[in-house]
């Protein structure tokens, strides 16, 4: 158990160092600041008081950048190891391939969640300063479910990194994420309206696709709707963990069979 903890901890630490030393995060934070600051002083038609648009744009940026970081970090973990040949000294150590997959996944997740936490803290402060009414519970739920989103997309990107090239992996993950966020809720009605074989394809996507729209609480945060039930939150997080476990299981199986 201790051995497992030490091995996993070592892999997580390296993933965190990789992310923070690349300075991608600093670029992303600066870009967000550059985009949001001018908007914060904007008064359309000379009338002040509008704040939801800023929240919407800020949250959109948080989602966009967190997806890019989550998918980007996970998608390059294994390809970078193979390309730079650091995989050889790694595999020579007394650590199983399955544990390597798990450790790298947890490292990528930790890196993405740490970046996300900073985004949400900054957003929370901005929100609290601008608005007289603040919805901390809804914001906390949004943050929690956003972690669920990262749990799923990081696992998906890691699985993809063992099956295809990095660019194909990023493209596919991007399409899945955007597609599900935009159309995920409407899939049942689309399925009902489609004839076969389109119907069968959509049913497959609906059944097996990553329903990342479950984790999107932006509507509630921006427009001040009430919180989601905690039981629903728990179900959604369980879905995230289950989906990620399935992806990681498949990734571990693929990595064990991979020739080096």
């Amino acid at each position: 158990m201790k051995m497992c903890g030490r091995q996993t901890g070592a892999l997580v630490r390296v993933a965190l160092l990789d992310l923070y030393r690349r300075k991608d995060l600093i670029v992303v934070w600066l870009l967000s600041l550059v985009l949001l600051l001018p908007l914060a002083f904007f008064s359309p038609f000379g009338i002040s008081g509008a704040g939801r648009y800023l929240n919407e744009i800020a949250l959109l940026l948080v989602w966009l950048f967190s997806a890019v970081i989550g998918v980007g970090v996970a998608a390059r973990l294994f390809p970078a190891e193979f390309e730079s040949r650091t995989i050889f000294p790694l595999l020579a150590k007394p650590v199983t391939r399955g544990r390597i997959v798990l450790g790298k996944y947890l490292g990528a997740l930790a890196a993405s969640v740490s970046a996300l936490t900073v985004f949400y803290l900054a957003y929370g402060v901005l929100c609290g300063l601008r608005q007289s009414v603040w919805f901390p519970v809804v914001l906390f739920q949004a943050f929690l479910l956003h972690i669920g989103f990262l749990i799923v997309v990081t696992a998906l990107a890691m699985l993809g990194s063992l099956m295809m090239t990095p660019s194909a992996n990023l493209t596919l993950c991007g399409l899945l994420i955007v597609g599900m966020l935009v159309f995920g809720q409407r899939l049942p009605s689309l399925i009902a309206a489609q004839p076969y074989p389109g119907k069968a394809f959509l049913m497959l996507v609906h059944a097996l696709g990553p329903h990342v729209e479950f984790f999107d609480l932006r509507q509630r945060v921006i427009h001040g709707w009430s919180r989601v039930g905690w039981d629903v939150c728990a179900v959604v997080l369980l879905y995230a963990i289950g989906y990620a476990a399935a992806c990681l299981g498949l990734a571990g199986w693929l990595f064990c069979r991979k020739k080096v």
Binding site: R6, A10, R13, V14, R21, S84, T86, P89, K93
Partner: peptide, 18 residues
């Protein structure tokens, strides 16, 4: 070939952990 973003101590820390 070792992780270019690590120092020697961090590299040894990583492998030692493994």
């Amino acid at each position: 070939c070792y992780y270019p973003f690590l120092t020697i101590r961090e590299l040894l820390d990583f492998y030692g952990g493994l």
